[in-house]
Design a protein around this nucleic acid. Structure first.
Length: 555
RNA sequence: GGUCCAUUGGAGAAGCGGCUUAACUCAUUGCCCUCUCAAGGCAACAUUCACCGGUUCGAAUCCGGUAUGGAUCACCA
């Protein structure tokens, strides 16, 4: 008769530690009352997902506001799907959004007393726990091949039974230790499965920080806890890691809710205290077929955080937007505090909505406008620089021709009570401000210009010629009065209203004159007001552009 | 199909049995301001809270059912 202990020793001869040893190695954290220990546990399988950023942001927030700890654990147990370098990238991207961990996996190194924080380096820890379970008769080797599992599943489907490896269908649960030892000695590959004592007919009460109390069926599946490659599955690693890293609150996407019974049984049979759970809603999107679905990295560009980075959205805007999804009272708070000291906002789980919000790019752009509108010209330059350096060489080059000149462009109608809010991202900015730069301007005016057909070329020339008289040293209102005078001298009405009242008396209105000026100076119909543009370009350059345009039109 | 979760306008939502003629924000539309654009100001936008029943003097709010949507059922996390 072979005992469970002998079986465990045969499977893990190298493991001598016990769970008690681990408890000593990773003692309870010494934190003030109420401090939360949270964690973000990504898999290095690709770019940072917008939903992951959402979760990570909430984790950071909850830890910070409670005086706790936020750490990062790399869940790299799926070696097949792993993408080299993505762990590092995850960290740098989180940092761009100001989601910075206190400890854990930090890309270049690890920090903290509860490591290693990379699951592939924790094999010995998992083995201690699994060995313990085998000794207790709560885990066993399973020699089923994928085909055999498939057959079991088929049989269950035929009989309309719940699929899975459980109860009487858990074939190798009924092996004797003698048979197990023999198979192992024969070199038959196996996984380790957890032996469940549950019954899915029993309901157990669970508590979720965002969803409150509800009932859920007990787990009865003998889930795999150690895969054929010697690495643990998510479920098992979650129980072991979150216990020994002393996580107080587990936050994760709501897709994990159905597996909660597994985790509960695991925690209980390992003798671990359960953490609090918060299953966060997932961010949705309406798909082609008109149905809501989870934001998908494959289908939706906005599902990858890199999308916003590459297009130069202010990272603050995404965080603010995500926080409005996280807490319904945040938006009002934000306006009350005029977008200041956002970190002082108090997050709470009961202000979190239960179903996933549709991702709303327009609303994100609104916040981005508000945020960018509140930056100084210098801040704008720094943001534009750091974005363009990475993603937009054309813009980067423009900025660096003369950084102060760029700042002046950014400063158009900025330092006033209601600043312009026409930027919501830095991507494409080179198109918008290009006309300030002579070489781009020259290219622009080679194309057909959007002149008003009401006026012929000699008329336009006449106007432009007169506009050279415009001074630049006065206030904007004075400048505009001068423009009106010039326009009046040429037969234009001082306002659109007057023109409407007496259309026969005038050839047009000041607006028409201003438009000619604008087109000449910027090559476009829509641009910031010409006064600002002229101040930045300088009298000399303005005259040059006017003369050049007159010459062009005279041909 | 089983299990769990959800359901207030185009979107995010407040609402916790009478204070609701359903707050606030984005979007949309109209008007005003205005040299264009952006910004700004003012208005409009759910007679109704998925539906059907019930409880109650009274329900978006409580209960039951139906419908719809979502998540999940791996040696993936």
């Amino acid at each position: 008769m072979i005992s469970n202990k002998e079986l465990a020793d045969l499977i893990f001869p190298e493991v001598h530690e016990t769970i008690q040893d681990l408890e000593k190695r990773y003692p309870e954290r010494n934190l003030p009352e109420g401090a939360e220990v949270t964690r973000f546990a990504p898999s290095p399988t690709g770019f940072l997902h917008t939903g992951s950023l959402f979760t990570a942001m909430v984790c950071r927030k909850v830890a910070s506001q409670s005086g706790g700890v936020f750490y990062i654990r790399l869940e790299d147990t799926d070696t097949k799907r792993e993408i080299a370098g993505s762990g590092e990238q995850l960290l740098t991207q989180l940092k761009l959004f100001n989601v910075v961990p206190d400890e854990g996996y930090l890309a270049t190194h690890e920090e903290g007393n509860y490591g290693p924080y990379t699951q592939s380096k924790r094999a010995d820890i998992y083995k201690v726990c699994i060995k313990h379970l085998i000794e207790q008769g709560r885990a066993y080797p399973d020699f089923c091949t994928p085909q055999e599992l498939e057959e079991i599943r088929k049989k269950q489907e035929e009989q309309k039974l719940i699929p899975g490896y459980y109860g009487e269908f858990a074939r190798d649960r009924f092996l004797t230790n003698e048979e197990r030892v023999q198979k192992i000695k024969d070199g038959i590959p196996y996984v380790i499965r957890f032996k469940s004592n549950g019954n899915h007919l029993n309901k157990i009460p669970v508590h979720d920080l965002v969803r409150g109390d509800f009932e859920i069926a007990q787990n009865d599946q003998d889930i795999v806890i150690l895969k054929g490659d010697g690495l643990p599955t998510y479920h098992f690693a979650h129980a072991v890691d979150d216990h020994f890293m002393r996580t107080t609150t587990v936050m994760r996407g709501e897709e994990w809710m159905p597996s909660l019974p597994i985790h509960i049984e695991l925690f209980e049979t390992l003798g671990f205290k359960k953490p609090n759970y918060a299953h966060l809603p997932v961010i949705m999107k309406v798909g082609e077929e008109g149905h809501r679905r989870k934001l998908s990295k494959r289908l939706d560009s906005e599902a990858a955080v890199s999308f916003f980075l590459e297009d130069g959205y202010p990272s603050e805007a995404l965080i603010v937007y995500l926080m409005t999804i996280a807490n319904s009272n945040f938006e009002e708070w934000l306006f009350e505090h005029d977008f200041r000291n956002i970190e002082e906002f108090k997050f709470s789980f009961d202000k979190m909505s239960l179903d996933g919000a549709l991702f709303d790019l327009t609303k994100l752009q609104f916040f981005a406008r508000e945020i960018l509108g509140r930056k100084t010209k210098h801040e704008m330059r720094l943001m534009a620089e750091s974005y363009s350096k990475e993603y937009n060489p054309k813009l980067f080059e423009l900025i660096n021709r003369d950084p102060l000149f760029f700042e002046e462009i950014m400063n158009i109608e900025r330092e006033k009570e209601n600043p312009r809010k026409d930027y919501y991202k830095f991507g494409g900015m080179e198109e918008i401000i290009g006309f300030f730069y002579n070489d781009i301007y020259e290219e622009l005016v080679k194309q057909d210009l959007p002149w008003n057909e009401k006026f012929d070329k000699p008329m336009i020339c006449k106007v432009l010629n007169e506009l050279k008289k415009l001074g630049l040293d006065q206030e904007e209102s004075e400048w505009f009065n001068q423009l009106k005078e010039i326009a009046g001298g040429l037969g234009f009405a001082p306002s659109g209203k007057l023109l409407k009242q007496e259309p026969d008396k005038y050839v047009g209105a000041v607006g028409d004159v201003a438009e000619m000026l604008r087109i000449t100076l910027t090559g476009r119909k829509n641009a910031p007001n010409p006064y600002c543009v002229m101040r930045i370009l300088g009298k000399q350059e303005c005259d040059r552009r006017l003369n050049q345009m007159i010459e062009k039109l005279s041909k």
